[in-house]
Simulated assay, not measured.
Amino acid sequence: MLILLPPSEGKTAAAKGHPFELSELHFPELNPARKQVLNALAHVSSRPDALASLGVGASLAAEVERNTRLHDEPSAAAHTVYSGVLYDALGYGTMTAPQKRKADAAVVIVSALWGAIAFQDFIPAYRLSMSVGLPETGKLASYWKKQLPAALDAHADGHLLVDCRSSSYAAAWSPAADRTVVVNVFQERNGKRTVVSHFAKHTRGELARHLLTRRGKAPQTPASLLTAAQEKWQAELVAGTARKPHALNIILPDSAG
């Protein structure tokens, strides 16, 4: 089983530590592409129109400025740097040592800057979204869509993929549909289902934690993933097709909101 996660928008910068080393990151096939994006990001972030180009407000000016010196910034494990709702719910820091080892082996983060990294890879905090386009690369989702298959297709071969990515990050790599289950979260109110973005992130984080900390064998099929999810939630499985992945729908009660 592999769990695909998006990065968090908000990041916790390392207070100390050595700068990142491309040679130490997983998926070294991506290093030439990573260098191009790093250089393009530094260039854009130094321009007067940097905030507009990166689609952020003035309150994030310091984070954008940090993009210009990422090679000198202290780094920390990705599971520490990424600190949004999903990662809080996943709670890596409170796992046991065996559970952390399982997470290190199972989690792949699809990133606008790095392409894809492992949970334990050391990175600096940065500001870049997959929806952004850089002059040297174009739209990052399209850029990485050309790069990621060479690194990730072989890594994913034979695994069940639990896809917890948001849509812009899912666009960057499409794994084999028959082995992929996209996780959707709905809230049911008065018999009607609605998408709940905040609770979707939280619930995907909870699902990832449950899969990594529960006893027993990790799910190997969409059906066994459904069984694992039903240990905690009301859930259903929508079968995929040759081109469309399966979908695990988790339905939250009205009280969740």
Score class of each variant (00 low, 15 high):
69 R>P: 03
83 S>H: 13
82 Y>Q: 08
220 Q>K: 14
36 Q>S: 10
62 A>D: 12
98 P>E: 12
238 V>K: 06
23 S>W: 08
91 G>S: 15
8 S>A: 15
53 S>M: 07
246 H>K: 00
110 V>N: 01
199 F>R: 08
168 S>T: 13
11 K>L: 00
72 D>T: 14
34 R>Q: 05
156 A>Q: 08
165 R>L: 04
104 D>Q: 06
105 A>F: 03
214 R>N: 12
175 P>A: 09
64 V>P: 11
24 E>Y: 00
172 A>S: 14
118 A>C: 07
43 H>M: 02
199 F>E: 14
163 D>A: 11
199 F>A: 04
150 A>F: 02
9 E>K: 14
147 Q>I: 03
16 K>V: 09
190 N>C: 15
1 M>Y: 14
214 R>W: 08
128 L>M: 12
181 V>Y: 14
98 P>K: 10
116 A>W: 00
112 A>L: 01
167 S>A: 15
247 A>R: 06
18 H>V: 10
187 Q>K: 07
58 A>D: 01
7 P>C: 06
133 G>Q: 13
20 F>Q: 00
46 S>Q: 07
17 G>C: 10
122 F>A: 15
175 P>L: 10
5 L>F: 15
77 A>L: 12
160 L>N: 09
250 I>G: 03
217 K>L: 11
108 V>P: 08
55 G>C: 02
137 T>A: 14
76 A>Y: 04
224 S>T: 15
251 I>F: 10
237 L>C: 08
55 G>N: 03
143 Y>A: 04
225 L>Y: 02
35 K>V: 03
146 K>W: 02
8 S>N: 07
158 G>W: 09
246 H>R: 01
188 E>A: 12
179 R>P: 06
95 M>E: 06
20 F>V: 01
228 A>K: 06
24 E>D: 13
195 V>R: 12
214 R>C: 15
